[in-house]
Amino acid sequence: MKARRLVWLGLSFVFAAAIIVAWQLISNFGLVSPIFLPPPSRAWNALVFNIERGSLLPYVLLTLQHMFYGWLIASFLGVAIGSLIGVSPAVRAYLAPMLEFFRPLPASALFPIAIAIFGLTENMLLVVIGFGALWPTLLATVNGFATVKPRLEEVSRLLGMSRRKFIFSVALPNAMPEALAGMRLSLTIALILSVTGEILSGSDGLGRWVMLQARGFRTPDLFAGVLLFGVIGYLSAQIVTYLERRLLRWRATP
């Protein structure tokens, strides 16, 4: 079992290495101009240089801040609104089609509207991130309420639970696995929207920094920034996965 996992891990490393080698070869043979595609070695050097100089850290922190606050707003609202909708089957049936309409809307399309209403402000950014990243968590929470086993509803009735007690002790914990999966998805959306938002609104952050490097044809720096996005996305998803594993401990059978 453990050996199998190690083999798979090894294979995925080999695959990643193969991509980097291919990238390096493309640059070496001049298949694509280094102005558009610098070799990975230079992108790496640019990344190390910028990190060592400490010039990237403030931007990274700003982007993390946008992403995290936006995600926090989305998660809180997603669970809260999802509970309000989920608690009543009638409301659920009534609002479900509308939610399905909002969900696939590309949130980045909201930037022009939000800019018109809120201006080029940090709040505008948070509103769009919060709104865009809301849906996976909200829909998962609604669904988590809908999937409470009929037997558990009976037990709740038999014990004489109040509606409030039912929501907090039965329905919400039941929705938890799905809501957490939704929060993991919404984290990715929050990152995407933070970057897009910074580019569109000129708020400081890694997104804006990357755009400026592109405009100045400093492609190694541009690629360094993109690599960093990958790292941020990966690490934040890992953190939520860790949280999921801890909070959903009860599902495991060791």
């Binding site: 009976e154 037990v155 039965v170």
Partner: peptide, 13 residues
């Protein structure tokens, strides 16, 4: 009430 399907009648979390 004691149900037959104890698995569904308990709170797994």
């Amino acid at each position: 009430v004691v149900f037959q399907d104890y698995g569904d009648a308990l709170l797994p979390w």
